[in-house]
Structure formats: C-alpha cells, structure tokens
C-alpha cells in the first residue's frame, strides 16, 4: 500500500498547494465570466422554456458540484476516521461550507425555475426533498463539528454524520431515473444514453460553467485548508509562548 501519510503532512500540503492556488484562482476568475456570457447572451433560448432555460446553466453545475462536495466530505471523513490522517478532517471541514452554498444555490435557482415552468415554487417530490436533506446534512455537519469543546470529538461526531449521510448521494442521483419514483423533476439530460437530450449549443456553456464551479470548489478548498493549517500553527505558537512565559515567571 502507498504511504498516504506522506501526502497528509501539513508542511507538504502547504508547499504543494501554494503554487496551485493562483492557478485555480485564475481559472475560476476567467471561466465564470466566459461561461456566464455564453450562457446568458450567446446560447439560444429553449424551444419550450424560452429564456427561462438560462437558469439551468447556474442550477445544474451547482447541483453536480454539491454532490461532488458531499462525496469529498464523506470520503475525507472516512479517511480521518479509519487512518487518522491529520489533514483529512480539515479537508472535510473546509469542503462543507462550499458544498452547503452550492446546495443552497441549487435549491434557490431550482425554485425560481420551477415557478414559471411547472407552476410551483416547491413540491415534495423525491428529487427536491432529497436535495433539501443534503443541505441539512451539510449544515448539520458544520453545527456538530463546532458543538464540542474538544475539537477532536466534534470532528469525529460530524464525520460519522457525513459518512452515514452519504447514502443520500446515490438516492439524489437516481431518484429521477433508475428508481421509479415518478418525480415532478425531469430525468438526467447530459448522462442520458439516447440522444438528443441537450443540444450542442447549450451543452458547451453548461460544460464551461461546470468547469468554473469545479475550479471555484478547488480554489476555496485549498484556501480553507491552508487557512486552517496556519491557524493551527498560530495556536501552537501561542501555546508554546504561553508555556514558556509561565516557566520564566515561576523561575524568578
């Protein structure tokens, strides 16, 4: 087995991630304007939804990245629980607020699209309900993480929530297709095997938007972990100075 501990070393992480941050940051800053311009101005209106289809370019990548964020959070939590890597909990904790924001964007834009298209802001069908539960799982994870005085205890309890809640990721994915739950939400377009589900002129802006979201996720995950490592170093420094101060004071 490869020695994963080598990559979980905080010093190693700081060294490897510092040139990466500006690169993914630059990609995020350039892909979002390009993607949004293509989605909002260049791409054609839909034959049936007309201009409302443009909400899809914000909604669908947010949903994809919310599922990816949760998968990452659950994986990091499992790694932390099983192998006790020093960085895994920090990674899981850093991805959680990003995933929660993506889920919230997905829910809000979906609601804005549902009103003119379906005729309702919200229904309790299997897809919408399971995504709402995903949002609560992210929030629950964050609340539980900070709920203990002992940070390690909070991390472990929250990690368990993340792992158990992972069961919702396949449920969300398959609620509209494989499982015959007959949702109001339509089935998947991009991964559908028979064509045409989504026209090329709409696929490109969607893919660029997805890449922009992904770069945003990576940028803020790296920044979050780096901030947490630096904060831990600061805390350790303070503690050491405080201990030294006590020793000096007592020796006088």
């Amino acid at each position: 087995m490869i020695n994963l501990h080598r990559y979980a070393n905080p010093n190693q992480f700081m060294r490897l991630s510092s040139p990466l941050v500006p690169v993914v940051g630059f990609l995020t800053c350039s892909l979002f304007p390009i993607g949004l311009y293509l989605a909002l101005f260049v791409s054609p209106p839909d034959y049936e939804q007309r201009e409302t289809v443009r909400i899809m370019y914000v909604h669908v990548p947010a949903a994809w990245m919310a599922l990816l964020s949760y998968t990452l959070m659950a994986t990091f939590s499992a790694v932390a629980l099983i192998w006790r890597h020093p960085l895994a909990n920090v990674m899981a904790r850093s991805v959680a607020p990003i995933g929660a924001s993506f889920t919230l964007i997905c829910l809000i834009t979906g609601s804005l699209w549902g009103q003119p298209t379906w005729g309702t802001w919200w229904v309790w069908d299997a897809r919408l309900t399971s995504v709402l539960i995903l949002f609560f799982l992210f929030v629950g994870y964050l609340v539980l993480y900070g709920a203990f005085d002992d940070m390690a205890k909070g991390a472990r309890a929250a990690g368990l929530i993340a792992i158990v809640g992972f069961i919702f990721v396949p449920i969300i994915k398959f609620s509209v297709d494989l499982l015959d739950l007959r949702t109001l939400h339509q089935g998947a377009s991009v991964s559908k095997l028979s064509s045409p589900a989504i026209h090329e002129s709409m696929m490109w802006p969607l893919m660029i938007m997805a890449a922009a979201y992904l770069c945003y996720l990576i940028t803020f995950l790296l920044l979050g972990v780096r901030t947490e490592i630096m904060a831990a170093r600061l805390r350790a420094g303070h503690r050491m100075r405080a201990e030294k101060g006590v020793q000096l004071g007592s020796s006088e």
Partner: peptide, 15 residues
Amino acid sequence: EVLAKHDENYMPPEV
C-alpha cells in the same frame, strides 16, 4: 392545482 411536467430535452426553437 395543475403542474406542467417538463421533459429532459433542451434545444433551440430552430432545432
């Protein structure tokens, strides 16, 4: 209450 279901096909009007 009447809700319209939308299918998973997206395309420009010309197509």
